[in-house]
Design a protein around this nucleic acid. Sequence first.
DNA 1: ATCAGCACCTGTTGGC
DNA 2: TGCCAACAGGTGCTGA
Length: 275
Amino acid sequence: MPELPEVETIARGLHARVRGKRIAKVHIAWQRTVDARSLPLSELVGKQITGVGRIGKYVAIQLSGGFTLAVHLRMTGQLLVGSLERRYDSSGTGDRKHERARITFADASVLAFFDARKFGRMRLLHGDVVAQLGVGRDPLDPQLTADDLKEMLAGRRTPTKVWLLDQHRLSGIGNIYASEALFYAGIRPRRAAGKLTAIERSALLKSLRRVLRRAIRFGGSSLNDYVDSEGKQGGFQKQFAVYGRLGLPCLQCRGPVRRIVLAQRSTFYCSTCQR
DNA sequence: ATCAGCACCTGTTGGC
DNA sequence: TGCCAACAGGTGCTGA
C-alpha cells in the first residue's frame, strides 16, 4: 500500500500523537505480524516513545534505551491512534476484524496495527537499524547526488522502472511513484537502467524528488486502504499524470496513456513523451 | 551476480 | 445472486 509519501505522512502524524507515551501493554492478534528476526515484543513494556520517523518504507518508532520498533505496512497495513472507547476512526477505518496488533499506553490510549492482507510486519531492533533493515539510500536525502545514481545504475540491464522498485538501492519508491517519476523525467519504463544518459539520470533524480515532495504535501495517495494515523485519506491520487490513467489523454501531448506489465506490476506511461 | 516468477493473504470489481 | 478470474501502494525466496 504505502510508498514513501504515505509512510512519511503516517510517521509525522504518529510523531505528533504518541511521542512521550509510555507503553503499558502489547497484544498480538496475528502472530506472524511479528517478524521472525524481531526481539520479543514483550520488551516494549515500560519503554517510552521518543519519536517517530521513516526509514525507507518503514515507520520507525523510536523508544527509550536505543530500541526501534520498525513497522512495514506492505500493501494494506494501517497504524491508527485511538482510545479504547472511541476506536480509531474519524472516518470509519479500523475494522476490528483486521486488527493484528495493539499497543496500549499508560494513559490508556491505543496504537493499533490493522492489516487486511496480513502482509505487514513489525520488528523490534536495537542498534544500527538502517543496516539491519537493509534499506538503500533515501531519494529525498540532500546528500544523494546524480553521481551516486550513476554508480548505482552502472551495468544494470534491468528496466529502469523495475530497478526503482528495488529497495536495496534507492528506498521508498513503489509502483505508483515509479511510473509518475519516469513520466516527468521523460524516460520509458523499459529503458535499461544502466543505459540512461547523464542528463536522464539527473532528470530522474529531480523528478523523483519533485513527485515525492508534492505527494507528501497532499498527504499521500489513497486508492483503497491507505489512511494516515488519524484515519484520513490522502489527496495525491487526483494528481496522477499516468498511474491508473489507461487510455486517458496524456497531460502533455493528449495521446493515450498506455499500460504494460513489468515484473508483474502494472506500469503506465506515455509513448510520445517518454523515450 | 542478476533476474523472472511465485508465494504470501484478503478484499473488491467486473464479466458471464 | 453466484461463481470465477483478474487485480491491488510490497517484498522474500527459489532456481535458472
